Simulated assay, not measured.
Amino acid sequence: MTAVARVDRPKTRKGSRIVKAREPLTIENPKKTSFVKAANINQRTAQILKDLYTLKKTESVFYQKKNDIRPFEDVSHLEKLMAKKDTSLFAFGSHNKKRPQNIVLGRTFDRMVSDQFEFGVENYKALDEFKVAKIGIMVKPVLIFAGEAWQQTNEMKRLKNFLIDFFRGEPREYLGVSGLEHAISFTAMGSSTILLRSYKIHLKRSGQKTPRAEVEEIGPRMDLKLRRHKIASDDLFKQALRQPKGLKVKKKKNLEQDDLGTSLGRVHMERQDFGRLQTRKMKGLKKKKGQAASGGGEESGGDAAEAEPMEADEV
């Protein structure tokens, strides 16, 4: 006999609502982030987690309790914490002599950890150390990636994709110029060092329709040293990028989009007969009776002079 897997069904209405809310959706909810502290975390590393949490405050869960977790050895406890709050991204902070000021950033697919990157934080300056005006909440940041190293290896390409997924915020259909207040810059200095900087965008008058933009660093500032990473296989990554059929846009004939999302169309027209082209109705452009019959002559007036045939030169 074939063994049948046991399925635990909810026994209460509240449990049914929770299970229904976790079912796959055509349009998924905005991704949330779990911020978890290790048992051996120090105050400096905890402050790093708090600054990252401030950048994603409206879509994050911060656990005050310390947890004995080692993400690169066993992620079962971490996956349970994320499933409890229905989060798909995580930031884990720890500190020890071998790996001081250690931050692990990662994400899950199908409630299992797929990609995770471990960084050592250097040259750190906290958000409170910048005595400038900060940005408000619910502000979608502009992400800037500088450096050729982002396109050199598969690991760096996957890391860039993850950072976009982690810091992009809630999706918006439209974003006006006045909503551009925050910019996060990632500069790749080789394949192991990433400079993270955060700026506030000030829009100044320029005398033209487009305003002039000035940036001011607001923190946090940190240099991320990539220590370890564990990424999903290419097949699993493609499976995570798969979209439902309802979201796939049907390809229209003679219509395509560029990288910025601008629609470009190709129009096919029949060959035009310029002799039938309608012009302004003016007396000076009308043909006279003699020209209408012969179909030639000048429109400026006067009879067309007959040209005498030229005799060929004798050789």
Rank of each mutant, 00 (worst) to 15 (best):
K251I: 13
V61E: 03
I103M: 09
K286Y: 07
E314V: 11
K50W: 13
R205E: 15
G136T: 08
M189N: 15
L277P: 05
T187W: 00
E173I: 12
T58N: 09
G302Q: 09
S294R: 12
N42H: 08
E311V: 12
A307V: 13
A305S: 13
L52Q: 02
E181P: 00
A149Y: 03
G296H: 15
A188C: 05
G179W: 03
M222I: 03
G265I: 15
A307K: 12
L264V: 15
S191N: 14
L78V: 08
A213D: 05
K80E: 11
K80I: 07
L55Y: 01
K209F: 04
E129H: 05
L241G: 07
L260S: 10
H202Y: 08
S300N: 12
R99Y: 12
D273W: 06
E170S: 07
R221H: 05
R266D: 07
V19N: 04
V249E: 14
A149S: 14
N123D: 15
K245A: 14
E79L: 08
E306T: 09
R44F: 10
K31P: 05
Y63H: 12
G246V: 07
P244E: 07
M189D: 14
A46H: 05
F162C: 02
S191W: 01
S198A: 09
L226P: 03
K248Y: 05
K65G: 02
D74I: 03
Q151D: 13
S60V: 06
K140E: 03
E155C: 10
T193D: 04
L241D: 05
H182W: 08
A188T: 02
S76E: 14
K66G: 05
S94D: 06
S76P: 01
K286R: 13
Q278Y: 04
M269T: 11
K238W: 04
K97I: 10
D223N: 12
S76I: 08
P30R: 03
F167D: 00
Q278S: 11
A188Y: 00
G275F: 12
D115P: 02
A307H: 10
T12E: 06
V315W: 15
L203G: 03
S294Y: 08
E306D: 11
N96F: 06
T187S: 00
D273V: 06
K250R: 14
Q101D: 13
R13F: 08
L81R: 04
R172F: 09
V121M: 09
I48D: 00
A304C: 10
T12F: 08
K250C: 10
G207N: 06
Q116Y: 02
P211N: 07
M82K: 02
I18E: 12
Q101I: 04
K160G: 06
T193H: 10
S300E: 15
N123I: 09
Y199T: 00
H95M: 05
L163E: 01
Q278I: 10
Q272W: 09
L255G: 03
E73G: 04
G15I: 04
